[in-house]
Protein backbone atom coordinates (compact mmCIF):
# COMPACT_ATOMS: atom_id res chain seq x y z
CA UNK A 1 0.00 0.00 0.00
CA UNK A 2 1.39 3.41 -0.96
CA UNK A 3 1.88 6.12 1.63
CA UNK A 4 -1.03 8.06 0.09
CA UNK A 5 -3.41 5.10 0.20
CA UNK A 6 -2.37 4.31 3.73
CA UNK A 7 -2.90 7.87 4.86
CA UNK A 8 -6.37 8.13 3.33
CA UNK A 9 -7.43 4.77 4.75
CA UNK A 10 -6.24 5.76 8.26
CA UNK A 11 -8.17 9.03 8.01
CA UNK A 12 -11.27 7.25 6.83
CA UNK A 13 -11.14 4.92 9.85
CA UNK A 14 -10.80 7.96 12.10
CA UNK A 15 -13.65 9.72 10.34
CA UNK A 16 -11.44 12.66 9.42
CA UNK A 17 -10.69 14.61 6.28
CA UNK A 18 -7.19 15.21 4.98
CA UNK A 19 -5.65 18.64 5.41
CA UNK A 20 -3.20 19.33 2.57
CA UNK A 21 -1.15 22.53 2.80
CA UNK A 22 0.74 23.82 -0.23
CA UNK A 23 4.06 25.62 0.07
CA UNK A 24 6.59 26.57 -2.60
CA UNK A 25 9.95 24.91 -2.00
CA UNK A 26 12.64 27.46 -1.24
CA UNK A 27 10.19 30.26 -0.34
CA UNK A 28 11.32 32.61 1.07
CA UNK A 29 14.65 30.86 1.63
CA UNK A 30 15.74 27.29 0.95
CA UNK A 31 16.87 26.68 4.55
CA UNK A 32 13.34 27.25 5.87
CA UNK A 33 11.57 24.64 3.76
CA UNK A 34 12.34 21.44 5.68
CA UNK A 35 11.64 22.92 9.15
CA UNK A 36 8.45 24.37 7.68
CA UNK A 37 7.37 20.97 6.37
CA UNK A 38 7.82 19.47 9.83
CA UNK A 39 5.91 22.37 11.43
CA UNK A 40 2.98 21.84 9.03
CA UNK A 41 2.80 18.19 10.08
CA UNK A 42 2.98 19.14 13.76
CA UNK A 43 0.14 21.61 13.21
CA UNK A 44 -2.07 18.87 11.76
CA UNK A 45 -1.29 18.50 8.06
CA UNK A 46 -1.89 14.99 6.69
CA UNK A 47 -0.27 15.30 3.27
CA UNK A 48 2.18 17.93 2.03
CA UNK A 49 2.06 19.56 -1.36
CA UNK A 50 5.47 20.92 -2.22
CA UNK A 51 5.58 23.40 -5.08
CA UNK A 52 8.48 23.30 -7.52
CA UNK A 53 9.25 26.93 -8.40
CA UNK A 54 8.87 27.90 -12.06
CA UNK A 55 9.58 31.12 -13.92
CA UNK A 56 6.17 31.16 -15.67
CA UNK A 57 3.44 29.86 -13.34
CA UNK A 58 0.49 30.38 -15.70
CA UNK A 59 -2.19 28.84 -13.48
CA UNK A 60 -1.23 30.70 -10.32
CA UNK A 61 -2.48 33.94 -8.86
CA UNK A 62 -0.13 36.67 -7.61
CA UNK A 63 0.50 35.12 -4.18
CA UNK A 64 1.98 31.88 -5.51
CA UNK A 65 3.65 33.64 -8.46
CA UNK A 66 5.58 35.75 -5.98
CA UNK A 67 6.48 32.66 -3.94
CA UNK A 68 8.09 31.22 -7.08
CA UNK A 69 9.92 34.47 -7.68
CA UNK A 70 11.27 34.51 -4.09
CA UNK A 71 12.46 30.92 -4.41
CA UNK A 72 14.05 31.52 -7.81
CA UNK A 73 16.00 34.44 -6.43
CA UNK A 74 17.85 31.69 -4.53
CA UNK A 75 18.12 29.66 -7.77
CA UNK A 76 16.17 26.76 -6.31
CA UNK A 77 16.30 23.83 -8.74
CA UNK A 78 14.24 20.66 -9.02
CA UNK A 79 17.28 18.71 -7.79
CA UNK A 80 17.37 20.86 -4.67
CA UNK A 81 13.62 20.36 -4.10
CA UNK A 82 14.20 16.61 -4.18
CA UNK A 83 17.06 17.01 -1.70
CA UNK A 84 14.65 18.84 0.62
CA UNK A 85 12.26 15.89 0.47
CA UNK A 86 15.14 13.49 1.30
CA UNK A 87 16.04 15.62 4.27
CA UNK A 88 12.40 15.74 5.43
CA UNK A 89 12.23 11.94 5.18
CA UNK A 90 15.07 11.54 7.70
CA UNK A 91 12.59 12.50 10.42
CA UNK A 92 9.27 11.67 8.82
CA UNK A 93 8.56 8.43 7.00
CA UNK A 94 4.77 8.40 6.96
CA UNK A 95 3.51 11.82 5.74
CA UNK A 96 2.95 11.68 1.98
CA UNK A 97 4.67 14.39 -0.07
CA UNK A 98 3.29 15.37 -3.46
CA UNK A 99 5.26 17.62 -5.79
CA UNK A 100 3.21 20.24 -7.59
CA UNK A 101 4.44 22.38 -10.42
CA UNK A 102 4.81 22.84 -14.14
CA UNK A 103 6.10 20.43 -16.72
CA UNK A 104 9.17 22.22 -18.05
CA UNK A 105 11.59 21.69 -15.13
CA UNK A 106 10.69 17.98 -15.23
CA UNK A 107 11.16 17.86 -19.02
CA UNK A 108 14.56 19.45 -18.58
CA UNK A 109 15.56 16.72 -16.11
CA UNK A 110 13.96 13.95 -18.20
CA UNK A 111 10.93 11.90 -17.13
CA UNK A 112 12.88 8.73 -16.26
CA UNK A 113 15.56 10.58 -14.35
CA UNK A 114 12.93 12.58 -12.49
CA UNK A 115 10.88 9.52 -11.52
CA UNK A 116 13.96 7.69 -10.30
CA UNK A 117 15.25 10.63 -8.26
CA UNK A 118 11.82 11.50 -6.86
CA UNK A 119 11.18 7.94 -5.72
CA UNK A 120 14.63 7.75 -4.14
CA UNK A 121 13.99 11.03 -2.31
CA UNK A 122 10.72 9.76 -0.83
CA UNK A 123 8.23 11.64 -3.01
CA UNK A 124 4.83 9.97 -3.30
CA UNK A 125 3.18 11.64 -6.25
CA UNK A 126 3.46 14.44 -8.77
CA UNK A 127 0.93 16.93 -10.07
CA UNK A 128 2.00 18.82 -13.19
CA UNK A 129 -0.51 21.61 -13.71
CA UNK A 130 0.06 22.05 -17.44
CA UNK A 131 0.12 18.37 -18.40
CA UNK A 132 -3.34 17.09 -19.31
CA UNK A 133 -3.77 13.31 -19.68
CA UNK A 134 -3.77 13.64 -23.49
CA UNK A 135 -0.05 14.46 -23.38
CA UNK A 136 0.85 12.49 -20.28
CA UNK A 137 1.31 8.84 -21.39
CA UNK A 138 5.09 8.81 -21.20
CA UNK A 139 5.21 10.72 -17.93
CA UNK A 140 2.58 8.52 -16.28
CA UNK A 141 4.48 5.39 -17.36
CA UNK A 142 7.70 6.77 -15.88
CA UNK A 143 5.97 7.62 -12.57
CA UNK A 144 4.21 4.26 -12.31
CA UNK A 145 7.42 2.33 -12.92
CA UNK A 146 8.66 3.90 -9.68
CA UNK A 147 5.39 3.51 -7.73
CA UNK A 148 4.72 7.24 -7.84
CA UNK A 149 1.14 8.48 -8.17
CA UNK A 150 0.25 10.76 -11.10
CA UNK A 151 -2.20 13.25 -9.62
CA UNK A 152 -4.52 15.14 -11.93
CA UNK A 153 -6.77 18.15 -11.69
CA UNK A 154 -10.43 18.21 -12.50
CA UNK A 155 -12.12 21.56 -13.04
CA UNK A 156 -15.58 23.10 -13.15
CA UNK A 157 -15.23 23.01 -16.94
CA UNK A 158 -14.43 19.27 -17.10
CA UNK A 159 -17.36 17.48 -18.74
CA UNK A 160 -18.36 13.85 -18.12
CA UNK A 161 -16.09 12.52 -20.84
CA UNK A 162 -13.05 14.37 -19.54
CA UNK A 163 -13.78 13.22 -16.00
CA UNK A 164 -13.81 9.61 -17.23
CA UNK A 165 -10.61 10.09 -19.18
CA UNK A 166 -8.76 11.60 -16.22
CA UNK A 167 -10.03 9.04 -13.73
CA UNK A 168 -8.67 6.35 -16.04
CA UNK A 169 -5.07 7.55 -15.54
CA UNK A 170 -5.10 9.25 -12.13
CA UNK A 171 -4.11 7.63 -8.86
CA UNK A 172 -3.42 8.75 -5.30
CA UNK A 173 -6.26 11.24 -5.18
CA UNK A 174 -8.19 13.59 -7.44
CA UNK A 175 -7.62 17.30 -7.04
CA UNK A 176 -10.79 19.21 -7.85
CA UNK A 177 -10.20 22.86 -8.78
CA UNK A 178 -13.04 24.62 -7.05
CA UNK A 179 -13.34 27.67 -9.30
CA UNK A 180 -12.77 29.08 -12.76
CA UNK A 181 -9.63 31.04 -12.18
CA UNK A 182 -6.14 30.96 -10.76
CA UNK A 183 -4.93 29.88 -7.35
CA UNK A 184 -5.90 32.20 -4.53
CA UNK A 185 -8.95 33.69 -6.25
CA UNK A 186 -11.88 34.32 -3.95
CA UNK A 187 -15.21 33.45 -5.46
CA UNK A 188 -15.98 29.97 -4.22
CA UNK A 189 -19.50 28.68 -4.92
CA UNK A 190 -19.84 25.91 -2.33
CA UNK A 191 -23.09 24.55 -3.73
CA UNK A 192 -21.61 24.12 -7.19
CA UNK A 193 -18.42 22.57 -5.79
CA UNK A 194 -20.42 20.11 -3.71
CA UNK A 195 -22.54 19.03 -6.69
CA UNK A 196 -19.46 18.52 -8.86
CA UNK A 197 -17.60 16.56 -6.17
CA UNK A 198 -20.64 14.32 -5.76
CA UNK A 199 -20.68 13.71 -9.52
CA UNK A 200 -16.98 12.82 -9.53
CA UNK A 201 -17.42 10.47 -6.57
CA UNK A 202 -19.99 8.44 -8.47
CA UNK A 203 -17.29 7.53 -10.96
CA UNK A 204 -14.28 6.78 -8.79
CA UNK A 205 -13.07 5.17 -5.59
CA UNK A 206 -10.19 7.63 -5.39
CA UNK A 207 -10.36 10.24 -2.63
CA UNK A 208 -11.40 13.67 -3.92
CA UNK A 209 -9.61 16.75 -2.61
CA UNK A 210 -10.72 20.32 -3.23
CA UNK A 211 -8.44 23.31 -3.63
CA UNK A 212 -8.14 26.88 -5.05
CA UNK A 213 -9.79 29.63 -3.05
CA UNK A 214 -9.99 27.96 0.39
CA UNK A 215 -8.45 30.53 2.68
CA UNK A 216 -9.98 30.32 6.15
CA UNK A 217 -10.81 27.74 8.83
CA UNK A 218 -14.51 28.31 8.07
CA UNK A 219 -14.04 27.65 4.34
CA UNK A 220 -11.95 24.56 5.15
CA UNK A 221 -14.70 23.28 7.45
CA UNK A 222 -17.36 23.94 4.79
CA UNK A 223 -15.44 22.00 2.17
CA UNK A 224 -14.60 19.21 4.65
CA UNK A 225 -18.29 18.44 4.85
CA UNK A 226 -18.23 16.84 1.43
CA UNK A 227 -14.62 16.43 0.24
CA UNK A 228 -12.01 13.88 1.37
CA UNK A 229 -9.26 16.45 1.43
CA UNK A 230 -8.93 20.21 1.70
CA UNK A 231 -6.00 21.93 -0.02
CA UNK A 232 -4.90 25.29 1.37
CA UNK A 233 -2.25 27.14 -0.64
CA UNK A 234 -2.41 30.89 -1.17
CA UNK A 235 -3.70 31.64 2.34
CA UNK A 236 -0.67 29.84 3.81
CA UNK A 237 1.80 31.27 1.30
CA UNK A 238 0.53 34.79 2.08
CA UNK A 239 1.41 34.23 5.75
CA UNK A 240 4.86 33.03 4.70
CA UNK A 241 5.31 36.11 2.52
CA UNK A 242 4.37 38.39 5.41
CA UNK A 243 7.20 36.89 7.45
CA UNK A 244 9.78 36.81 4.65
CA UNK A 245 11.92 39.31 6.56
CA UNK A 246 11.94 37.11 9.68
CA UNK A 247 11.92 33.61 8.18
CA UNK A 248 12.74 31.94 11.53
CA UNK A 249 9.19 32.86 12.65
CA UNK A 250 7.56 31.10 9.70
CA UNK A 251 7.36 27.52 11.05
CA UNK A 252 5.54 28.61 14.24
CA UNK A 253 3.06 30.75 12.30
CA UNK A 254 2.41 27.91 9.84
CA UNK A 255 1.94 25.46 12.71
CA UNK A 256 -0.70 27.58 14.37
CA UNK A 257 -2.52 28.26 11.08
CA UNK A 258 -2.63 24.50 10.43
CA UNK A 259 -3.94 23.92 13.94
CA UNK A 260 -6.76 26.41 13.36
CA UNK A 261 -7.71 24.76 10.05
CA UNK A 262 -7.47 21.32 11.64
CA UNK A 263 -9.67 22.28 14.57
CA UNK A 264 -12.33 23.74 12.28
CA UNK A 265 -12.31 20.69 10.01
CA UNK A 266 -12.42 18.18 12.86
CA UNK A 267 -15.65 19.51 14.34
CA UNK A 268 -17.38 18.71 11.05
CA UNK A 269 -19.31 15.47 11.41
CA UNK A 270 -18.15 13.16 8.67
CA UNK A 271 -21.41 11.42 8.06
CA UNK A 272 -20.81 9.60 4.85
CA UNK A 273 -17.53 7.76 4.68
CA UNK A 274 -16.18 8.21 1.20
CA UNK A 275 -13.69 6.50 -0.96
CA UNK A 276 -15.86 3.61 -2.06
Amino acid sequence: MSRLELRFSQLMKQGRRALIPYITAGDPEPRITVPLMHALVEGGADILELGVPFSDPMADGPVIQQASERALRHHVTLHQVLDMVSEFRRNNSDTPVVLMGYLNPIEAMGYEAFAKAAAAAGVDGALTVDLPPEEADEFVTALRSRQLDPIFLLAPTSDAERIRRILAVASGFIYYVSLRGVTGAGHLDLGEVQRKVAAIRKQTRLPVGVGFGIGSPQAAADVAEFADAVVVGSALVRRIADLAAVPENIPAEARSFMAALRAAMDVVPVAKVSGG
Binding site: D130, P132, A155, T157, S158, V177
Partner: peptide, 20 residues
Protein backbone atom coordinates in the same frame (compact mmCIF):
# COMPACT_ATOMS: atom_id res chain seq x y z
CA UNK B 1 -5.76 16.03 -34.92
CA UNK B 2 -4.19 16.65 -31.51
CA UNK B 3 -2.22 19.63 -32.67
CA UNK B 4 1.15 17.96 -33.05
CA UNK B 5 3.79 18.96 -35.57
CA UNK B 6 5.96 15.87 -35.17
CA UNK B 7 6.94 15.94 -31.50
CA UNK B 8 6.17 19.67 -31.21
CA UNK B 9 2.98 21.58 -30.45
CA UNK B 10 0.16 19.86 -28.57
CA UNK B 11 -1.97 21.13 -25.71
CA UNK B 12 -0.17 21.82 -22.43
CA UNK B 13 -2.55 23.82 -20.27
CA UNK B 14 -4.31 23.47 -16.94
CA UNK B 15 -7.46 21.36 -16.91
CA UNK B 16 -9.78 24.38 -16.67
CA UNK B 17 -8.74 25.48 -20.17
CA UNK B 18 -9.16 22.10 -21.86
CA UNK B 19 -12.88 22.46 -22.44
CA UNK B 20 -12.74 26.06 -23.77
Amino acid sequence: ARGHFGKFGGVFVAETLMQP
